[in-house]
Design a protein around this nucleic acid. Structure first.
Length: 120
DNA sequence: CTGTTGACCAGTG
DNA sequence: ACACTGGCCAACA
């Protein structure tokens, strides 16, 4: 039905759909939660390739907290603006900040959320 | 078909 | 803080 074919890709997108507003996840964490350990790179590829228009794609950042899009580009500006509007704050200069304060905003899945993940 | 690239990342020095 | 390594593997040339 979708242009997004592979099983691994669907799992990653399914988990992404559950990331709550105001929180962020790293690529590696996203893959991990999808049951795909050490597949951080796949998560990155999926975010670049798949149709994420109806998913919270902007809540995925590097494990370091850095946004992985090209700094200053239109997509970068959009991601930054979306996160700011959800209350996510950045390190350093508020105008040029490129790094999310992970300790404060990284998604910590609880048991209920884990249960949701079992039925994708 | 082979070779390279990359919205990644933890480990090591 | 920074540089480099090895793992990972689908997409692309």
């Amino acid at each position: 039905m979708s242009l997004n074919s592979s099983q691994a890709e669907r799992q990653i997108l399914a988990v992404l759909a559950h990331v709550p507003a105001g929180k962020v996840v790293s690529y590696g964490q996203l893959a991990d939660l999808a049951g795909l350990p050490r597949r951080a790179r796949l998560a990155g590829r999926v975010l670049r390739t798949a149709d994420t228009r109806h998913l919270p794609w902007h809540r995925v950042v590097a494990a370091s907290g850095q946004l992985s899009l090209v700094k200053g580009s239109a997509p970068w500006l959009e991601q930054r603006q979306r996160l700011l509007s959800e209350g996510v704050r950045f390190k350093g200069n508020p105008l040029s900040g490129n790094t999310v304060i992970m300790a404060q905003y990284q998604w910590q899945p609880d048991l209920a959320q884990l249960l949701i993940l079992l039925d994708y």
